[in-house]
Each structure stands twice: as C-alpha cells, then as structure tokens.
Amino acid sequence: MIRNGAPVRVLIVDDEPDICWALTHILKSTGIVPVTTTSGREALRLAKSQRFHLAFIDAKLPDLDGLDLARRIREGDAAARIVLVSGYFYCDDAEVRQAMVAGLIADFVGKPILHQQVEAIAREVLSQVVSTSRVIAPVP
C-alpha cells in the first residue's frame, strides 16, 4: 500500500463542509489526501489546473448541477473517474442510470454515506493507478 505521497489525486465537491470532512476522513485509511471545495465553479477551476483520477461530486450544488460539473470535468480529462454523491437521487433513478450507462459517472454513492463503499472505490482506483504507473514508469 502506498502511503504518503500517493500518486492518486482525488477531488471532493460538496456544498456541505461536513460532508467534505467525512469523505476526507474516510479516504485517510487509504492514504489519499483529497482536495476539497464547497463550490462547483471552484471545482471546475481546480480541474482545469490539474488532473484528478477520482472526483466525488454532490448532485445538487447551489451554483452548478452535479452532472453538469461531471460532464465538464470529463471534457477536459476523459480518464477522470466520477462518483456522484447525493441525498436526493436513488441509485436507480433514471437520471443516475442514464449517466452510468453513458459512462459519465462510474459510481453512485447515496447519503447517508456508507464508508465501505467509498473505501472500496478508492482502493480500486488506487490499484489501477499504481499498476498503470508501474507499466509506464517502472521503479528502478
């Protein structure tokens, strides 16, 4: 397991600061230190300045629609894995299913958040990123 300085960059966007707090603490066990913001526009700006492997996006942001934000992030970086987080939708809502089928989002996490689900997603991304970075840049 990669500890500090893990090459996996994660973005968390939720207008509720305590949700950002919770997600940050959940990811701690995987060694990931995420970037958090409560604003959709700020998230967009961050995504333009750096690439994120994984982004947790709240579906209902006051300034931007969550799925819209996901679309715009992926326009800049098609490899970004997006997780929609929502207390409004259910995982089998038509809008959510469509976004999954279209490949816009990779996962859906409902509120209240189950920590295990978030951890599993993070570990999966972690293993992918680590294995591909080994292939591309093998450690001497």
Partner: peptide
C-alpha cells in the same frame, strides 16, 4: 425531494461520525 436532500445531509454527517 427537497426534504430528502435537506435531511440526508445532516443525517449523513451524523452517520459518518458514528461510523468513525
């Protein structure tokens, strides 16, 4: 729908804290 969104946020925070 609005209620779900509004209420699930504080519930989710409380739930996370309890899980920790």
């Amino acid at each position: 729908g609005g209620v779900a969104h509004e209420i699930r946020n504080p519930l989710s925070i409380a739930s996370s804290a309890a899980q920790f």
